[in-house]
Amino acid sequence: MIYRNKTEAYWELLLTIARDELGIESFDAAGDTGADMRMCRVEDIGRALERAYDMGLMVGHTVTRAGCAEESRV
């Protein structure tokens, strides 16, 4: 799978979560070796998704608070 948004701010965070929770070092395809396929425990996938969701909530909260602070200064 080819991802086009590797420069997005969230990309490094998602790779960090994948590395920590699933042992995935890169999202780049390994080629024809089949090395880009791996078995993951459902529990590990759930933990990775939960962590990504939590980070999304934290970022959303931070952005919302920053927007409210900006509006109150105007």
Rank of each mutant, 00 (worst) to 15 (best):
W11K: 08
E12V: 14
R47H: 09
V63G: 02
E71V: 11
H61R: 15
R47G: 01
E71K: 07
R38I: 01
C40N: 05
D44L: 02
A29L: 08
D32C: 03
K6W: 03
D44P: 01
E50A: 09
I2R: 09
S26Q: 10
M37S: 04
S72N: 09
A66H: 12
I2F: 09
C68A: 13
A30K: 08
C68Y: 09
L13G: 01
A9Q: 14
F27A: 00
I45Q: 08
R65L: 03
M1F: 08
S72M: 11
S26E: 11
A29I: 05
D44S: 15
L22I: 07
T62W: 13
L22A: 03
G34M: 04
D20Y: 11
R47K: 15
W11P: 00
R19M: 02
G56K: 02
D36C: 04
T33L: 07
A29H: 09
L14C: 13
E70M: 15
R65Y: 03
T64H: 12
A9T: 15
R41I: 00
F27Y: 05
E70V: 05
M1E: 14
N5T: 09
V74E: 05
L14W: 05
A29D: 10
T62F: 06
Y10R: 12
R38N: 08
A52L: 12
Y53V: 04
A48D: 04
Y10H: 13
G31P: 02
A48E: 00
G67D: 10
M55Y: 02
G60Q: 03
I24A: 08
A69F: 06
D36Y: 06
M55G: 00
E25G: 12
D20H: 13
C68G: 04
S26R: 14
E25Y: 07
E12G: 11
D32F: 05
A52W: 01
M58C: 04
E21D: 11
D32H: 06
W11H: 02
I45G: 06
D36A: 05
C68Q: 12
T62V: 12
A30G: 07
S26D: 14
R65G: 01
R19S: 12
E21S: 03
L49W: 12
A48P: 00
M1Y: 12
D36R: 00
I45F: 10
Y3M: 13
I45W: 10
G56D: 05
E8S: 08
C40A: 14
E43A: 15
A69C: 10
L49F: 15
Y3T: 14
M1P: 02
C40F: 07
L15N: 04
C40Y: 07
I17M: 05
R19Q: 15
A35S: 06
G31V: 02
Y3F: 11
V59Y: 01
A66K: 11
L13R: 00
